[in-house]
Simulated scan of single mutants.
Amino acid sequence: MRTLRLLLASALLVTTLAPVSVHAQSGPFAYFGLEPDIITNYLGSNARKLGYVRVTVELMLESPDYLEAAEHHSPLLRASIIEIIGRQPEDKVKSLTGREDIRRTCLDELKRLMKKETGNPMVKDVIFTKYLYQG
């Protein structure tokens, strides 16, 4: 009898939770990798010193339908990321909080550019899967 109650309770719990997890998903996303890696210079500690950074960037798109548009606009997206990284000071490039600030700046700028070009921001997130610097 106790086993039957536990079985019924677990079945009720599974039945109750299943629709919640399905509704919690906000939709299918797509990922678009900017190839090749972005390699650019950044400002060093003084005017004579430059460092370089190599970043692998993946874009999380709001829908798989946006893959073609992301590929079409990839030169614009790459140039924007290169420009943002290139004007960063050394301490920002080398710190974890600075890296996060750079990532957020890239996200905001890419959303703005895609909104301007296509009428839809399309980019849900920017992910740095590799982030190497020297300088």
Rank of each mutant, 00 (worst) to 15 (best):
Val14Arg: 04
Leu6Asn: 12
Ser63Leu: 02
Lys130Gly: 03
Gly119Thr: 06
Val22Arg: 11
Val20Pro: 00
Gly86Pro: 06
Cys106Arg: 00
Leu17Ser: 11
Met114Asp: 03
Ile39Ala: 12
Ala24Lys: 06
Ser45Thr: 14
Asp108Lys: 13
Arg99Ala: 09
Gly119Ala: 05
Tyr31Ile: 12
Leu13Ser: 11
Glu71Phe: 02
Ser26Gln: 15
Asn46Pro: 08
Ser21Cys: 11
Ser74Gly: 02
Val57Met: 03
Ile102Met: 15
Gly44Met: 06
Ile127Tyr: 10
Glu62Pro: 00
Glu83Tyr: 12
Ala18Pro: 01
Thr129Phe: 03
Glu71Cys: 01
Ile102Val: 15
Thr56Ser: 11
Val57Thr: 13
Ser63Ile: 00
Val20Gly: 02
Ser63Ala: 12
Tyr66Glu: 08
Glu68Gly: 12
Glu100Trp: 05
Glu62Phe: 00
Thr56Gly: 07
Tyr131Ser: 03
Asn120Trp: 00
Thr3Ser: 10
Tyr133Gln: 04
Asp91Gly: 05
Thr40His: 07
Leu77Asp: 02
Asn41Leu: 09
Pro89Ile: 11
Ala70Leu: 05
Pro36Glu: 06
Thr40Gly: 07
Pro89Ser: 13
Lys49Cys: 02
Thr56Gln: 11
Lys94Thr: 14
Asn46Arg: 13
Leu77Gln: 05
Lys111Asn: 06
Lys130Phe: 02
Arg103Phe: 09
Gly135Thr: 01
Ser10Gly: 02
Gly33Asn: 09
Leu12Asp: 00
Pro121Ser: 05
Arg78Leu: 06
Arg103Trp: 07
Pro36Ser: 08
Ser80His: 03
Leu13Asn: 06
Asn120His: 10
Thr40Asn: 11
Lys115His: 04
Asp101Tyr: 04
Ile38Arg: 01
Gln134Tyr: 09
Val55Ile: 15
Ser26Tyr: 03
Ser63Arg: 06
Gln134His: 11
Val53Cys: 04
Ser26Glu: 14
Ile39His: 05
Thr118Ser: 09
His23Leu: 14
Asp91Tyr: 11
Ile84Asn: 10
Thr129Ala: 01
Leu6Gln: 09
Tyr31Trp: 07
Glu90Asn: 12
Leu110Cys: 05
Leu17Pro: 01
Lys92Met: 15
His73Asp: 12
Met1Asp: 08
Leu12Ile: 09
Ile85Cys: 04
His23Ile: 07
Tyr133His: 11
Phe29Cys: 00
Pro89Gln: 14
Thr129Pro: 01
Gly119Met: 11
Ser10Leu: 15
Val20Ile: 14
Glu62Ile: 01
Leu17Tyr: 10
Ser80Gly: 04
Gly135Asp: 07
Gln134Trp: 05
Pro121Lys: 10
